[in-house]
Nucleic acid binder design. Structure first.
Lengths: 119, 119
DNA sequence: TCAATATTTCAAGAACTATTGAATCAATAG
DNA sequence: CTATTGATTCAATAGTTCTTGAAATATTGA
């Protein structure tokens, strides 16, 4: 992920509705959710939701696919991982005190049975 | 870090000049850099720089202290760590495929000699 | 105290982003 | 083929953020 992509991702995440949409989609799994379901969960109009989903998609944070009449949106997990990496790589550069505490919080998210390299 | 703080941090990072300022300050170490030095490095006017530094400070990503005539700005490492944690905790929730790849990139940033818990 | 330096604050305008409701487009069922 | 459903696009407006240059503030040295 380069600076331009990171800027786009941060801009996408800097709006309350969009941050909440992304969190919903991440926890909804790779199959995704129909735009209508997301709109209902967020309590916003379909046109407003469409606007925000388009921003998230332009930032690469979500992907969409049509399934019959619905359009299903899902979180782009690899791009999220890229963004975390960007923060660690480009912002921690030579400053482990930034990302060590972040990593210490990771086990809650990443189950230890996965064979992750010793950091 | 709660949603509101994260929104503020993302907004602060979604502007090119500010993202570059933060990266400069992170790599400049805890002693920080005078506002004037940052302005010169960024090639922007002092009043514009002041505007962006204020945004970064309001977001909690940098701190400032006066030293003689200069005001020294430095990166708020713990807040950056909080932000990485926020992305991992609130966005990876139950989806290790998001943060495992991110963690795999971490060694480059966090030297292995530090005794970090096995993730 | 006065001048110089470092920085911030302010006001105006430009540029960008978000919201709304109406119109449009795509897919399906009858 | 028409009506219905699910979603997007568009145009107008409202709101927010960025940039600029001038004025103000704080600190120091002569």
């Amino acid at each position: 992920m380069d600076e331009t992509e990171a800027l786009g991702a941060f801009a996408a995440l800097s709006q309350e509705t969009r941050l909440r949409i992304l969190r919903l989609l991440v926890t909804s799994g790779p199959d995704g959710l129909a735009a209508g379901a997301v709109a209902e969960a967020m309590g916003v109009s379909s046109s407003n939701l469409s606007f925000h989903l388009a921003q998230l998609e332009r930032a690469g944070l979500v992907t969409s696919r049509r399934e019959s009449r619905s359009i299903l949106y899902s979180a782009a997990y690899p791009v999220l991982a890229d963004l975390i990496r960007f923060l660690m790589r480009d912002c921690c550069q030579g400053h482990p005190e930034v990302c060590v505490p972040a990593l210490e919080a990771a086990p809650a998210c990443c189950p230890p049975e996965k064979d992750v390299p010793h950091v």
